[in-house]
């Protein structure tokens, strides 16, 4: 049996209220998965737990068979995390940044050097490879962060709002790079508020509201389930589906809380 890229079971994270509430999710290898949800739904918290940045209060996370609590380093070795605000070092050049990341992931130096040249070329950063990042625009910084995520050849890439603040050309470039990685067998999970990106790129889409996975499936499956619930057209856009799923969950949630 093939190991799943990501397997989440009954994941819970509590702050004042549950940020993530008994969430279960399975993503097979080589899939492009989009996680949608309104602000504060629990998307970033979920992905931060997957990346090992937050400890779950309850539940398990397994990345390619590595339990993130029992074998955190094994899980991290095959994962890359790209936050919404690119965190890079202003005083390093993109090439030095990639050298640093390759050193942390213990990538073979020769392979890292070749990979760095290749990735910087693909992302259109080769002309800036030896310039310090301090003067870079948000888009360039985002591309450097993405290059860092790709340099160690991860099997699972998690991206939190990767296209925010990017111009059309850069956004297209990033989407192409991610598609290519998926074609090579890598799994990509991203959160986005740009529903068109999810609609065009994702093979499956999950919708989170109030820390729970309230809908999941391919676009066609979501259309069907949303159509059944609302009696709406089968040609409904993802935006319409998303709004109706979130609205439905908002009415269900108080009932669930009252019952609890």
């Amino acid at each position: 049996m093939m190991t799943h890229a990501l397997e989440i079971r009954n994941l819970t994270k509590l702050y004042q209220r549950p940020a993530v509430d008994d969430l279960s999710l399975t993503i097979p290898q080589g899939e492009f998965y989009a996680l949608l949800g309104p602000n504060g739904a629990g998307k970033t918290t979920t992905l931060k737990m997957v990346a090992g940045l937050l400890q779950p209060d309850h539940g398990t996370i397994s990345i390619l068979g590595h339990d993130t609590v029992a074998d955190p380093l094994g899980a991290k070795r095959v994962t890359a995390w790209v936050p919404d605000e690119p965190m890079i070092y202003d005083r390093l050049t993109p090439l030095e940044y990639l050298e640093f990341v390759a050193g942390l992931w213990q990538v073979d130096p020769e392979r890292a050097r070749q990979g760095a040249d290749e990735i910087l070329g693909i992302l259109g950063l080769e002309a800036h490879a030896d310039e310090r990042c301090e003067g870079f625009s948000k888009g360039m910084r985002q591309k450097v962060a993405l290059a860092g995520a790709l340099i160690h050849d991860p099997r699972l890439i998690i991206l939190d709002e990767p296209l925010t603040g990017l111009d059309a050309g850069s956004a297209r470039l990033v989407k192409d790079v991610l598609r290519e990685r998926v074609r090579q067998g890598c799994t990509v999970i991203l959160t986005t508020h740009i529903l068109e990106v999810a609609e065009r790129m994702a093979e499956r889409i999950g919708v989170i509201a109030n820390g729970r996975l309230v809908a999941e499936g391919t676009l066609a499956e979501l259309r069907t389930s949303s159509g059944n619930a609302n009696g709406s057209s089968e040609e409904a856009s993802l935006e319409e589906i998303f709004l109706s799923v979130v609205a439905r969950s908002a009415t269900v949630e108080p009932e669930r809380e009252a019952a609890a």
């Binding site: 090992g52 991290k76 994962t79 936050p83 965190m87 890079i88 070092y89 990341v101 992931w105």
Partner: peptide, 10 residues
């Protein structure tokens, strides 16, 4: 500067 990068490294 990049705490999340370091925290997600193996």
């Amino acid at each position: 500067d990049a705490p999340e990068l370091v925290a997600t490294a193996p």
